[in-house]
Design a protein around this nucleic acid. Structure first.
Lengths: 166, 166
DNA sequence: TATTGTTATACTCTATAACTATA
DNA sequence: TATAGTTATAGAGTATAACAATA
């Protein structure tokens, strides 16, 4: 029969409420870095799995998003924006080029630089991916109401874009 | 002369304020998952580099922290807590055992399970690591004031420990 | 038969160095 | 000489499958 799920010996298990409370009162549970890693690991897993059918992952989706915007960035600037090493951008751009989503053009103002720009196919796919990403975000943050999500967004923007006046 | 810094051809460059503002008004700049990845990538790099002298990283530090707490968790529960696959815990615990920071003991209540407990050396090292981690957190979040940091912490706790009543 | 821990493997992510072309 | 991009490589992080010990 086809419906048989694959056997997974090392399955993730849930912590019961009592154990959760015990850990929540431990010193580590107040460290923002720890909380952030844990909170967004699950979110990234979710968005990666859902973007898979569009041939994207969180990383390539972010790059595609910037390539769709009117801001023309060199690969160097993309590296800075995405908190990646410049060398990592190369492979990421190559991947999106292979899928026909973006093109790489020499920057006319400085022929050392390369501008990454989305194709019409890339733009179309981005719109679909964006809907998926927004829904995944909502699903990953069900324990926060709309106002709390806005606050979280504002605080994160303040960390990431300190110069932009929130 | 010894002071010569190593040459790095692919150095990270900063985006100027104008480019930051342009990107900050782009759709991707409102997606929490994107903001979170970017915000905490730098923080994790910082804490990893500072914990290096103690033989720790963000991951092993978190595991050590839980091992120091009175909550006795099996490796299975540790996997759930740290958002890792159970198989990844094995290597992480092995590493801390090699450094003499924790011991692995059979759970007397269920001999299939293993309890991970910090040694006195592990506890001592944890106290020093904790000071480093707290300072790194403060440095990584300079763009937030104390009240904003508390809010961020509260929201993250609500995502991570939904059952624990904030 | 089901679950915990373990080992093995592969793939993604991250970090660093060296090379090339343009400036 | 300095910078943007590229290539190569190694190590850390993540995901999955199979197996032994215990329940």
């Amino acid at each position: 029969m086809p419906g048989t799920p694959k056997p997974r010996a090392s399955e993730r298990t849930e912590l019961d409420a009592a154990t959760q409370r015990a850990i929540a009162s431990t010193p580590i549970a107040d460290e923002i870095e720890f909380l952030a890693i844990k909170a967004f690991a699950a979110g990234t897993r979710l968005i990666n799995s859902r973007l898979q059918e569009l041939g994207l992952r969180a990383r390539s989706y972010s790059l595609l998003a910037v390539s769709c915007s009117p801001v023309q960035l060199t690969q160097r600037e993309l590296a800075s924006l995405l908190e990646l090493d410049p060398s990592q951008i190369v492979a990421l751009v190559d991947e999106l080029i292979d899928q026909g989503m973006v093109v790489r053009e020499t920057d006319p103002r400085d022929r050392r630089g390369r501008i990454v720009r989305a194709t019409s196919h890339g733009r179309e796919l981005f719109e679909r991916a964006r809907a998926v990403a927004m829904q995944s975000e909502a699903d990953a943050l069900v324990t926060l109401n709309a106002s709390e999500r806005d606050t979280l967004r504002r605080l994160l923007r303040q960390i990431v874009f300190p110069a932009s006046g929130t």
